[in-house]
Design a protein around this nucleic acid. Structure first.
Lengths: 354, 354
DNA sequence: CAGTGCTTCTGAATCGATACAGTACTCCGA
DNA sequence: TCGGAGTACTGTATCGATTCAGAAGCACTG
């Protein structure tokens, strides 16, 4: 049988509480007794307080659940995601907290059950559509939740670390418009719920189900509307997933037909790099023949000379952790909006046709 | 106050156990009563059995701790690691189990404490040197542990999913030796405990502290000894970490001096890709001027035309999960050695000098 | 020597759930 | 009408820890 606090207490001939104190409140007993207790523990092969029992009593388990609707491997393919998680892990570590990775199953019931049974102190949701069954299950748990996206203004209790998505792409769009670009293509994932790479001409930004893509598309729409390019004139392509390969395929949809767009706007750097791949295989020069812009500013963007919108991924993760583990009293301070910045590199330039 | 099983039981006027049964053993009570209980629960905002309390009673938490001695971001930079974790996550998901990521702190005491307090059912250690304080802390917990590396034969209880590291590089080394290569350079991380990129001429394989690097170097040593190239003639370079950039820098140490090695052997694909980068910047042709070989066979190896030793990362992860969550009765079957395979691509060829 | 204050230790209550033995009740057949 | 089987539910012990009020012991003070 495994030994418990009680076993050790009996062995030494003291009470359970005293043994407990020996481990977690050394100042409450004499060093001699403490040593005697540890001796007995060693003899009995007792490893110290059982974490499960401790967490029941303390009401704290030392782990936060990280929710995302994707496979693990996919989640960690994007350096942006990795940076975010790293920031989160940094803060978590400061608070002696681990990260419980919960890639959510396709099956809605199973996903909800996973959320219900997770032994965690809170949740960090990351790239999880509003309509997902896990969102409701989370609310039921009544644990603190922090999101990496802005939540509906409806809930003043909501905690999030976000950026102003639409403002960021509005600025980026204006920059491209000023360079003379008028024939535009947009590539994004989750423009439609289906995971397919294909043009989706009809979609208006408002109809895009996933918050991030919706906002970013809206920003671009507004920017080009200012120079007279209306939304229906902009080619929008849905990428099956946020990967280089999918984006390269998506880019083919618009590159291989005339007239070719002069600028391709992607909602992430992963997608933008795929677009660059597509240009490369066709012998087209980025920033001369076709301008390409991304979002996130991952390390590869620098080496690829990709113009992009920088968002502070690491900082987002750090602050998300802080909001969960050490929330400010003031509710307003629990809704953080971080700045973004347009980083101009070689992949954008004046529109080629005069 | 948060509502509990008891609260709901009082509200409905039944016993605690009945409410418990309503949630986890529906066949033990009438559908009517069950509905009544759920109604009350909804009214009171009770979300169902508390996972922490349940896990205390059941003796099962539903999470396994994943240990590695590195930052999160580093761990997920290597596609091999990601694949392994994906396999692990797959099996875990089948057993309704989550992964608790535990990047271990530098501080030995803190790392040990983290292991002691982790609310988990078992540990999977991955890329953790034997000397690390967490190893001892783990043994104390007396929970099942699975390693992704072969453990000392001393412990017949040890569970691991490994490959025959030395045999793999022995085969790879022989292949290169047969191609005529005699001037060899080796690049590995953790040849010495310090995280610095620099030649480490003196190190013998036996002295390398980290198991994986030690074995792989030994395999290569033996292969070249067979054709008369003794160990001291082989240039060994320590890479600060398992990254492309570090490897490129490490490769510089041997490429920029005469006579240049005809083959550079890296203990991982990440490192090998860095070597290819270094060749590229110097206008050297892989497989002609310098042969390069890696280890792992990550996806990028295919596109880069990298000759490498394939190891089944995904399968390793899956089996590691199975060993932890559904261990075979037979102790011998808990020690799995998976096959490896030499995959020849364009980055290796006959030694250039006749 | 009673009274005070301090440290050290004890014992009981508590957390939220599950397991199990036992009770109450219904139903059926003889 | 009685007995036995089966179902629905109750009450209590238990898991392994933490917490807290208070008891015991001790030294010191007046």
């Amino acid at each position: 049988m495994r030994s418990t606090l009680q076993t050790v207490a009996d062995e030494v001939g003291v009470s359970r509480s005293t043994v407990s104190n020996a481990y977690s409140r050394p100042d409450q007993l004499s060093p001699e007794l403490r040593e005697k207790i540890f001796d007995a523990a060693r003899r009995l092969g007792y490893a110290g307080p059982d974490p499960a029992a401790r967490s029941l009593r303390k009401g704290r388990v030392g782990a936060i659940g990280v929710l995302f609707s994707a496979t693990l491997s996919y989640a960690f393919t994007d350096p942006y995601a990795v940076q975010f998680l790293r920031g989160l892990a940094e803060t978590a570590e400061l608070h002696d907290t681990g990260l419980l990775l919960m890639p959510l199953a396709e099956d809605a019931t199973a996903a909800a059950a996973a959320v219900q049974n997770a032994v965690v102190d809170g949740f960090c949701v990351y790239c999880l559509p509003d309509w997902h069954s896990a969102q409701a299950a989370m609310r039921l748990r009544k644990l603190p939740v922090v999101s990496s996206e802005r939540r509906d203004a409806g809930d003043p209790e909501a905690r999030f670390v976000a950026i102003d998505e639409a403002a960021a792409t509005l600025a980026a769009g204006r920059y491209l418009a000023a360079l003379g670009h008028r024939r535009i293509a947009l590539i994004a994932d989750w423009i439609v719920p289906e995971r397919e790479t294909r043009p989706v001409a009809t979609a208006r930004p408002e109809d895009v189900p996933y918050y991030v893509s919706r906002e970013r598309l809206a920003g671009y729409r507004d920017a080009f509307a200012e120079v007279g390019v209306e939304w229906p004139e902009i080619a929008t392509v849905n990428a099956a997933q946020n990967s280089r390969a999918a984006a390269a395929q998506a880019a083919s949809c618009v590159l291989d037909r005339a007239p070719r767009p002069t600028a391709i706007l992607a909602v992430s750097d992963m997608l933008a790099l795929g677009v660059l791949d597509a240009l490369h295989t066709r012998g087209l020069r980025p920033g001369r023949d076709v301008s390409v812009i991304g979002f996130d500013d991952i390390p590869d963007a620098t080496t690829a000379g990709l113009t992009t919108v920088r968002q502070p991924a690491l900082e987002k993760g750090r602050q998300a952790g802080a909001l969960l583990l050490n929330p400010p009293e003031d509710l307003a301070q629990r809704q953080v909006v971080l700045p973004t910045e347009l980083v101009v590199r070689a992949s954008t330039g004046p529109a080629p046709d005069a």
